[in-house]
Amino acid sequence: MIIRKTKPQDVDSIVELAVESVSTIAPIPELKIDRDAMRDTIELCLQPAHLCLVAEKDGVIVGAIVAQVLPGFWFHKLQCSVLMHYARESGAWVKLMREFARWVKGRSGIKMALIEIEDCHDPKILRFIERLGFARPSSNRMYIRGAK
């Protein structure tokens, strides 16, 4: 298995992975999946300021991570937000996350990086991410129109 930068021809495979991830892990039925928005955002993240990596096994994309870098809203320098991290194989996800951590730590302009982990994930996932250096906990809450 190899981890590599995303090529334009990989975008459709990443969209399918993204759809799979939001459809299976913690689906939110009140929200309609927008493949065009996913595609547009992934294409934006192909630019060098952002990060878009894939895990490829035997010529098939089995995982991806997409992260967007923007100026910090309330602090100097940059914030990196992971928009998607998903793999069909756990080994691929681990390799993607390790490469993401190396990438973030290698860019001195990034002062904060955020990764959302759904509450339904195995606690081992949180421990792994903490070992990579993403140790400051935070919490978020969502309002979803039409949700009970």
Rank of each mutant, 00 (worst) to 15 (best):
L31K: 11
K7H: 09
T41V: 09
S138H: 07
C120S: 15
G72Y: 04
I110F: 01
K5W: 02
M84E: 13
G91C: 02
I65G: 03
I115G: 02
Q47C: 02
V82I: 10
E116H: 08
R98P: 01
G109F: 08
P8S: 03
I61A: 09
K77H: 12
L132A: 09
G91K: 07
Q68A: 01
H121T: 06
K105P: 00
Y143Q: 00
V66G: 08
V11N: 10
K32M: 03
I3D: 05
I110K: 01
E43Q: 14
K5I: 02
A147M: 10
L44S: 07
Q68F: 01
M38A: 14
A67Y: 01
A113P: 01
E16W: 01
P123T: 09
W74Q: 14
G59Q: 10
I65Q: 04
A37Q: 06
C120K: 14
I129N: 10
V19P: 03
S138W: 00
M1P: 09
M112Q: 03
V15W: 00
I28K: 09
E89R: 14
E20R: 11
G63A: 10
H50E: 04
T6H: 00
D122G: 01
L96Q: 11
L44Q: 10
V66R: 13
E20Y: 03
P71V: 15
R131A: 14
M38S: 02
